[in-house]
Design a protein around this nucleic acid. Sequence first.
RNA 1: GGAGAGGUGGCAGAGUGGUCGAAUGCACCGCACUCGAAAUGCGGCAUACCUUCGCGGGUAUCGAGGGUUCAAAUCCCUCCCUCUCCGCCA
Length: 444
Amino acid sequence: MGATRVALTLEDVNQRNATMLDPKLLRSDPQFVAQRLALRGFTLDTASLESLESRRRELQTATEQLQNERNVRSKAIGKAKAAGEDIQPLLDEVGQLGDELDRAKAQLAEVQSEWDALIAGLPNLPHASVPEGADEDDNVELHRWGAPRAFDFEVRDHVDLGARFGYLDFELATKLTGSRFAVMRGPIARLHRALAQFMLDKQTLEHGYEECYVPYMVNADSLMGTGQLPKFGEDLFRLEESGYHLIPTAEVPLTNFVRDEILDHAQLPLKLTAHTPCFRSEAGAYGRDTRGMIRQHQFDKVEMVQVVDPETSYDALETMRGHAEAILQALALPYRVVTLCAGDMGFGATKTYDLEVWLPSQETYREISSVSNCEDFQARRMQARFRHPQQKKPQLVHTLNGSGLAVGRCLLAVMENYQNADGSIDVPEVLRPYLGGIAQINAE
RNA sequence: GGAGAGGUGGCAGAGUGGUCGAAUGCACCGCACUCGAAAUGCGGCAUACCUUCGCGGGUAUCGAGGGUUCAAAUCCCUCCCUCUCCGCCA
């Protein structure tokens, strides 16, 4: 028997098609895909794509034919044996087939993995309404809300404000763990908690999301589903023992609720929210935002996820943006909304809005929320589908995610925007119930 | 952590090497019967991929991966998960 027998079933080869983009589109109109991807600065090698594809097709057909032949003959052997006939001649006939089949499978697997590697790196296609551009400088401002406050004293940043009584302590966190961590204490810790509570209440009670508590570690399948793996593993913290990863956002566990599910149409839209810590390695961000809690390895976030009928995903994107904006408006924090240009969008998104909150210390708007439609990109990876009662075949759902909001950055924004000349910080009206009615913190 | 049992289609549950993508029941859909319904009868009822203009044909999937074999739901190995008992623990 073949010593080089390759242990690969056809199913591996078929199902490993963990495509992100619609493979049919990729095959039928690679030029179109290439053109859309070019908008995000991504060059698709259509020539090698097409040659790979035609080889794959050839090999797959040949392999399946061999497989069929083997199946037919094996069945014949079974029948002959049952009938008490001599099966030796049949066995001899089938002799070569196994090796031939193994070779065919091996070849097919090779081509298939090349194809997989190629398409695994393809980001989603930007929506037609997304502005062209290479980086954040080309993002388009949609609107602004609120006016930055005019201070008649020199503003402090949140680091100085937090250091006043040691309520926000970065050195301590460095001792405990390392850089890019923070310890919050006393009223700041409480304010932080209040913010998360407030956000969660708003998203659940007013905007109709279901509150969820989820694992903060997930397996590789989940990360594959939402697109963090295989390409962006270096952004994650991985636990040696189990191979689990700490979640970089609750989008991962929440969206993966529907992985490998076929939902009833009546279940849509699914609206989920969770308050979780998020863990990011921030590899590649050395030296950026090193001061303060803008960019931390660990931060809290209230995340919103929607799983919707494809017909409604762009409506959902707009309303979800509104859900995020509602938090900033309730806190009376000035912000602006930008539509990310094609080159600045995340891997899986077709369209993304960023909410940027005003930071007096930096005299600029900084990202505090990102709201994206992924269309069927994640759904395809997750095999997340739904069924219309009238339609026979299940179809892919659309998924959206958005921060509502990043709690750490929101805390910092509150501290800085609500500071007073003496270093005290007013508590925004809507948060006071969460703080036992306290109207001011950080006062002498 | 120790001992044992188990993972099969939407659900329940047969199946221990061949004609099994998988009996049977329930659920669901269509048709017949009916004024209508129930009951009954007949039929249908997984997913992905390849191929075909289409009808259709093919391949794969019985927790996952690997092995044995001409042939694996069925035999062997590894892993994951669930359940029961004991221990430990928030």
